[in-house]
Nucleic acid binder design. Structure first.
Length: 170
RNA sequence: UCAGAUGGCUGGAUGGCCGCCCCGCCGCGUCCCCCGUGGACCGGCGGGGAGGAAAGUCCGGGCUCCACGGAAACACGGUGCCGGAUAACGUCCGGCGGGGGCGACCCUAGGGAAAGUGCCACAGAAAGCAAACCGCCCGUCCGCCGGUCUUCGGACCGCGCCGACGGGUAAGGGUGAAAGGGUGCGGUAAGAGCGCACCGCCCCCCUGGCGACAGGGGGGGCACGGUAAACCCCACCGGGAGCAAGACGGAGUAGGAGCGGCCGGCCCAGCCCUUCGGGGCGGGGGCCAGGCGUGUUUUCGCGCCGCCGCUCGGGUAGGUCGCGCGAGGCGUCCGGCGACGGACGUCCCAGAUGAAUGGCCAUCCAUCGUGUCCGGGUCCGCCCGGACGCGGGGACAGAACCCGGCUUACAGGCCAUCUGACGCU
RNA sequence: GCCGCCGUAGCUCAGGGGUAGAGCACACCCUUGGUAAGGGUGGGGUCGGGUGUUCAAUUCACCCCGGCGGCA
């Protein structure tokens, strides 16, 4: 369990919390650890899990926390290979737009594709992901009631908002 | 024009914003070291980036490791008309036989049932080797009926009837998927290839063809039912595993350790005890035996190895290579009916590994639904064509070592050749 | 990547060429004051789908679909 790749990426960008693209989780063990963290938010288009990066504890307290890390999972329940790949790509595109600026450094995230992922409007995925990133790391003192799914608008009815990509890289 | 057959091609286009993977070049850029024509990162520029099925994993190969000495026999699996193509094939091409269609054309697991075994339910007399039920016919006998004669006891006669026995027969009845060649005429006591004609079958010969086979002639009254995608026989083919193969380097608490129980022999190292005679322990090593593996067995060769239980500990799709010049793509010409082969020229064209090749949007195009208008037709139900508006809407599907096939999925579009029907000239 | 097994009534399963069956469940009847148990009667099947072999296919062959499992 070397933490060399994480540390090498941290020192290059001097700025912290926003950062750029998160590192990818690729080991099965990482996925199991994040799933075991019991922090998850369910939305219509995806499930978001989160857990603190265990490498943080080995660093000195005043060191820079590593950039957030992210992994994707689409099981066979989502569909055949074409459907799974498309679901993962849409989630990755959404994460590229939302994670810089909203993901917390020193945390690991896992995005799980669902059968409804490809049916959701992309703008809805962006909104849900931004809200889920806030909720997944907040204190779990309150009971795990239903998330704010009361909006309940049919995904097709989304207005034709022009200009969804509003991120601009500095 | 309509209907159809076959073969082939294609598998949305353009643009905008933001991204991904690989390769190459560049940089007063940052870092690392065994200081260089080095490596990693960052930035810029340029190039490339899913399919006809990438799928199912049903076959055939390349490649890699194991067994590689072999073999023989036995198994097991596969293939199965003939000739060719090919690296090879269960694939493809060209033919043959059989079946279907008016035709273009399509389908065809198509060796052997007189080597043997099994099965053929129900029905039926009988389901395989010849027989036999009901019938039909002949003969004998008993009885009845009718007739003739009579010495009244009976005798004789009958396309006559019933029954029994002996014999002939397989046409008819009926069952079945299938019943001992079929149809017709003759023939007969009744019948029957019993005889004859045609068709079918078997055997022999001739001709053509490399061959499957085809054509012709002669002979035989005809004997051999089906099933081999039942066992089987014959011929041919097949060593096993698979890139998670395999190779390299690194780390390492790994290649196991401990305890207990059990199991062959001999020898040696070693350890312990010793009264110096010796005794005990002894998978640490060797030999034999034994076990396991090499598909099975045998001769023989090779490799590996104590067994069981409990406890403890670690690893198990981490890195690099394999991994992209190949039975390669494209074009022209030549040979071949064709599959395909040859020559020349030209091109370098995906290499990911929680897995890149994309996300979002706009316009156009193919196309579908619906509405309005115009033109034409009308059997007044509507139909055809065009324009415009609105809405829907991109088929099947994602490389995972690589090729050749097969199979399966697929919105639509295009091209070529051919067939049939109708109309016109 | 390679390999194997399964699919039959609502559920669990037999049947391996000729009539599709068992147990539980379901419906009705008997029994009981009533229920359960018990007894009796009955309904319910494209045998996962297709093509073929055969006189005849749930069974045999091939191709698909779905599910489960194993190895490295």
């Amino acid at each position: 369990m070397m933490n060399a790749p994480a540390s090498s990426a941290t020192e290059t960008p001097p700025d912290t919390e926003s950062g750029e693209r998160p590192d990818r989780l690729k080991r099965r063990g990482d996925f199991l650890r994040v799933a075991g963290g019991r922090r998850k938010v369910v939305t219509a288009g995806f499930i978001l899990q989160a857990a603190p990066n265990p490498a943080v504890r080995r660093l000195s307290p005043d060191a820079e926390p590593p950039v957030p890390r992210l992994g994707f999972t689409c099981s066979r329940k989502v569909g055949k290979a074409v459907v799974r790949n498309r679901a993962r790509r849409r989630l990755r595109a959404a994460a590229d737009a939302i994670f810089p600026g909203h993901a917390r450094p020193g945390w690991d995230y896992v995005l799980i594709g669902r059968q409804e992922t490809n049916a959701q409007a992309f703008a809805r995925l962006l909104d849900d992901l931004e809200r889920a990133l806030r909720r997944v790391v907040e204190d779990r003192a309150r009971s795990g009631g239903r998330h704010g799914g009361g909006g309940g608008r049919p995904p097709k009815g989304g207005g034709k908002r022009s200009g969804p990509p509003r991120r601009s890289a500095p």
